[in-house]
Computed example of a mutant assay.
Amino acid sequence: MLNLVIFGPPGSGKGTQGVKIAEKYSLEHVSTGDLLRNAIHNNTAEGMIAKSFIDKGELVPDDVIIDIMDVFMEKLPIDKGILFDGFPRTVAQAEALNGLLIDHGRSLSALLNLEVENEELIERLVLRGQTSGRSDDNEETIKKRLEVYEAQTLPVLDYYKKKGVYKSVKGVGDIEEIFTNICQVLDKVVEAEV
């Protein structure tokens, strides 16, 4: 059973490709943003804690996100694989995810890293900002987001390289071409697990 993390900088196409991967490989596509919104909407204890941080404009602490992820995994059938999108973002979150997977009788099959050059990312995000009206998709903000990504989340890649589950995928080309690249990598992962 596949349990995957899709990884890459802002604008790399994680969301678009994540939906396609989840559909093709029958995985539960989960993003921390969706989990947080659901927990808040359902007035769970974890959701109310998360809301208190969000309302102050602060990041939700790792332990709250891990608790929400734990509740989600508890409800998921053991034979259903998971695609984690936007999580983990730090080495501490990666270590916590590893513990959660073990607690739920699972292991991570692969981390898929969508490789895209910064110039291409900036171009994509500026274009997205022009078409979607997202205020955070302007060149200055994008460059700051990429700096934060490199500082905080690139160490996560090293963590997974050491675990032997890191897989690099060229994230440039049209959507179908990138998806074909991803499937070639994932089909090998599936074969290795059988």
Rank of each mutant, 00 (worst) to 15 (best):
L127C: 12
L125N: 00
E115T: 13
G129Y: 07
H104S: 01
V126Y: 07
L127R: 14
H104M: 01
F87V: 11
T90C: 05
F87L: 10
D85L: 08
R124A: 04
N113S: 15
L125P: 00
M73E: 10
G105M: 02
F84A: 10
E95G: 05
G86K: 02
K75T: 10
S109Y: 00
E119L: 14
I82R: 08
F72A: 14
M73K: 05
I78Y: 03
I122L: 11
G99I: 08
G86Y: 02
E95M: 09
A110Q: 02
A94H: 00
G105K: 06
N118F: 11
V116I: 14
D70P: 04
T90M: 03
D103Y: 09
A92S: 12
K80F: 00
L76I: 04
I102V: 15
K80D: 02
N118E: 15
D79K: 13
N118T: 12
I82A: 09
A94S: 07
L97I: 13
K75L: 09
V126R: 06
L125K: 01
V126N: 05
P77L: 08
A96E: 02
K75N: 14
N113R: 12
G86R: 01
L101K: 08
G129P: 06
N118R: 13
L97F: 12
N98S: 15
A92W: 00
D85P: 11
I78P: 05
G129L: 06
D85T: 07
M73I: 06
T90L: 05
V116M: 08
L111Y: 04
M73R: 04
E117G: 11
M73P: 00
P77H: 07
A92D: 09
L83N: 05
G105W: 02
E95F: 03
H104P: 00
I102N: 11
L108S: 01
F84C: 10
G129E: 07
A94G: 05
A96F: 03
L125T: 00
V91P: 06
E119M: 12
N98M: 10
M73Q: 02
E115A: 13
P77F: 09
D85W: 02
A96D: 05
